[in-house]
Amino acid sequence: MTTLHQLLLLLGLFVVPLILLMSGHRIKRSSSARQRLFWGAVTGHIVALLLALGASLWPPTGWLPTDTWRGALGVWSLVVLPIVGALVAFLGTRRTTS
């Protein structure tokens, strides 16, 4: 595992949920767009958690730098999918309101 992967793992494992938790404070009182952003990011992170868990366990052999899909699902997804989820939800809101 490269240093970048280690950093991304820590970011996705601890920093992203912390940010989500902080942004979820009094979410019901915030605007509809912000609520959508929040729930999109939460959904993205939950999906990423499941993917990362699966990718880390299967196959039960060591990680190699050449394991592209494993790196994508096990490390990158934890950071990228919450952003994708938030964007998808935000764009969905814009389309609905316009």
Partner: peptide, 12 residues
């Protein structure tokens, strides 16, 4: 806070 932050580590 601890429950949310430690979810994946504990699940794994």
């Amino acid at each position: 806070w601890l429950g949310v932050v430690a979810t994946l580590a504990l699940a794994s």
